[in-house]
Amino acid sequence: MAEAKAQKAAGTAAGTGTNRREFLASFPFVTAAWVAMTGALAGVGAATLRFLYPNVLYEPPQQFKIGLPTDFQVGEVSTAFKDRFGVWVVRNDEGFYALITVCTHLGCTPNWLATENKFKCPCHGSGFYSSGINFEGPAPRPLERAAIALADDGQIQVDKSQKYLFEQGGWDDPSSFLPFTA
């Protein structure tokens, strides 16, 4: 056995020079190549995943103050905070609530139609009363309300990270409604 091996080795050395396959296999090139390729693929994969997450997020703040209770008129649906914060603030006879401007059908932004006294979604025509209750079109549930409270400085503070859903009884929660106290 050992003899044959030695002979073979001698033969190759004497004949065609170094056997290329053996020469290569004795080096870790192939291993290195595999490692490099795996690394590169992982890098591409990671970069692709990273790409799914935006560098900058222009998200409106979740908690914000919207002014003094006396700034709002009774019966008014204020659209002033729609662009900046994504809420409508409604002042009814008793107080305030904040409706989140996301259609409960598929998430378009409805418009407040003051003359028709309703929110109307341009995507599939869902309509909501100023209370947020859905009454027309395909939306399966009412608009969501955000937490609303009085801050220390007397301003109204809205917290969108707290949501109150009508169908879960959330509108009975005291933080979903701010009674007007003058």
């Binding site: 729609k82 418009n111 341009p122 025509g125 395909p138």
Partner: peptide
Amino acid sequence: ANPQLTPNPSKAPWYFLGLQEILVYFDP
């Protein structure tokens, strides 16, 4: 695009308008 402003009306690409219409009548 402005997330706070949905064009009115907002239409899907033409080949999806059939599906958008069906969305009006069925649960999403």
